[in-house]
Nucleic acid binder design. Sequence first.
DNA 1: GCGGGGATTAACT
DNA 2: GTTAATCCCCGCG
Length: 197
Amino acid sequence: MTATASLRANRLPAAWFARDALTVARELIGCALVHRRRAGIIVETEAYLGPDDLASHARFGPTARTSVMFGPGGISYVYLCYGVHQMFNIVTGEDGDGQAVLIRAIAPHAGLPADPAIGRGPGKVTTALLLDRAHDRRDLARGALFVASTELVPELASGPRIGVDYAGPWAARPYRFWWRDHPAVSATRSVSTRRKR
DNA sequence: GCGGGGATTAACT
DNA sequence: GTTAATCCCCGCG
């Protein structure tokens, strides 16, 4: 059995994503993000809570681009940032919530060079896994793109999200989560820490 | 239509 | 620390 085939047996179902973005963002750390024969361990995420969250694309309500965020959890949301980089997000919560989690960094796991920089940063995540906007609105409960649980038990840290200084009071809230001291994390700024489970 | 800005990155100084 | 690359989306008219 190949590495990604065994991960497939641990694919997370749609119901796993039908929870609030903060919970999903925390619990995604240590899970595997898999696309075809490539897989990375998620080591950094950010939660975006809904239309009230002034850092979120959902702040304008559903639009042609962001309507997927207002659907049920477990669907991908991929968009282009700065005209250059593709960002991979997972919609969470119930239909109508507008919540999502951005995957900011992965550590190489299968089918990738053993270089911690390969998935360090949100634009690098999509490059490493060969994802682009063609993978927008995919159902992660089916198909070649999915998330799988692992036996890993990361030590979690949290702090403010990156690059959202325009979001007023929302900018400082600790909605970013990462695997503490992991070499594949894109920034090392630490505000608080806690242990998983 | 038009204009401003952004959930970034790498390659500078 | 600063900046260029590069383009779609959104809000407004």
